[in-house]
Design a binder for these strands. Structure first.
Length: 313
DNA sequence: TTTATTGT
């Protein structure tokens, strides 16, 4: 085991990670050659695919230079090109797709498709004009409110980052829904190392034509003094919003030649020294899948996959 | 630069 791998495991908790089988992602994918064909048929009647026959009645891909302001079927298909990680309470917004965890009042996962254009500086989009607000599409029993976060000591941390959605003010606004938030340690995490990871993902668009990123929370077990394993996490506010122990990102970068490069990261929701290299937090994608109960990019053709965490496969 | 909060 390499030094960096060992440091990584120590950082995110040895007991948590050793509980998961550290196989290779490619092993599972090797049986998935025909995954693409079965993909569409597998989808249940989600609201945005409700009537396939109606698809032609809905505005399709916008003309070049124009921007989708609503979650059109074509845009959702583009964002979700490589498959849905899960299907629990899926919501499609103008520029990202989310699955909501009603029990924990935070997302299960959010999916984004970003390009050099969508992350480019745009004076027409002003983050300071965006307001954090409750998501009215979530049943009130399960809806997080701003009061849950107030004086909790935690930031309202974006899962789909505001900085990834600069094509239009509406795209930026939509990322401020509380259904896209989870409680994050502010100084030392959200505003620092997690922000570094988000910036790194944006930087990938300088090299790759399309970047697909899935982000979400984890609740990892740890061993306590009695020798038993427990999952323990704080909850905040009147609506008992869960404070995840860790967060993940699974990224697929698509090159102009259709070759795919996959990366996966798990970071603990705690103060992380700014000089910690992001590589320290790399894990096999399968580790995130087992921890989250989700399958990422399962519609990806493995023949296109050329690297995982920077190593050839 | 972007990420955010504090009865400021």
């Amino acid at each position: 085991m390499s030094t960096s791998k060992m440091r990584n495991i120590l950082t995110i908790g040895a007991t948590a990670i050793s509980a998961f089988y550290l196989g290779t992602y490619t092993n599972r994918l090797q049986n998935k050659d025909d995954a693409t064909e079965e993909g569409i048929c597998r989808l249940p009647g989600l609201p945005f695919f409700s009537t396939v026959s109606a698809a032609t009645l809905v505005p399709a891909t916008p003309a070049p230079g124009e921007v989708n302001l609503t979650a059109t079927p074509s845009r959702i298909s583009q964002i979700m090109k490589y498959g849905f990680p899960g299907l629990d309470h899926v919501r499609s917004h103008s520029d990202y797709v989310l699955s909501y965890d009603r029990r924990n009042r935070v997302p299960h996962w959010v999916f984004e498709h970003i390009t050099a254009d969508s992350v480019a500086k745009n004076d027409a989009v002003d983050r300071s004009k965006c307001d954090f607000r409750a998501d009215e599409s979530i049943h009130p029993y399960f809806r997080a409110q701003n009061t849950d976060y107030r004086r909790s000591g935690y930031d309202r941390g974006h899962m789909a980052a505001a900085g990834n959605h600069r094509l239009h003010q509406k795209h930026c606004d939509d990322t401020f829904l509380l259904s896209n938030m989870a409680p994050q340690v502010g100084q030392g995490f959200n505003r620092d190392s997690w922000n570094r990871l988000e910036s790194y993902v944006r930087k990938l668009t300088r090299t790759y034509a399309n970047v697909y990123v899935c982000t979400g929370p984890l609740y990892l077990p740890h061993k306590e003094d009695d020798g038993k394993m427990y999952v323990k996490y704080e909850v905040i506010g009147p609506n008992t919003v869960a404070v995840p122990t860790h967060f993940y990102k699974v990224i697929v970068s698509e090159a102009a030649d259709q070759k795919l490069h996959m990366e996966a990261y798990i970071m603990p929701n705690k103060v992380i020294s700014d000089d910690t290299p992001l590589q320290v937090f790399q894990v096999p994608p399968e580790t995130v899948e087992r921890a989250a109960g989700l399958l990422f990019f399962d519609q990806m053709n493995r023949k296109q996959l050329v690297s995982v965490n920077g190593k050839k496969v």
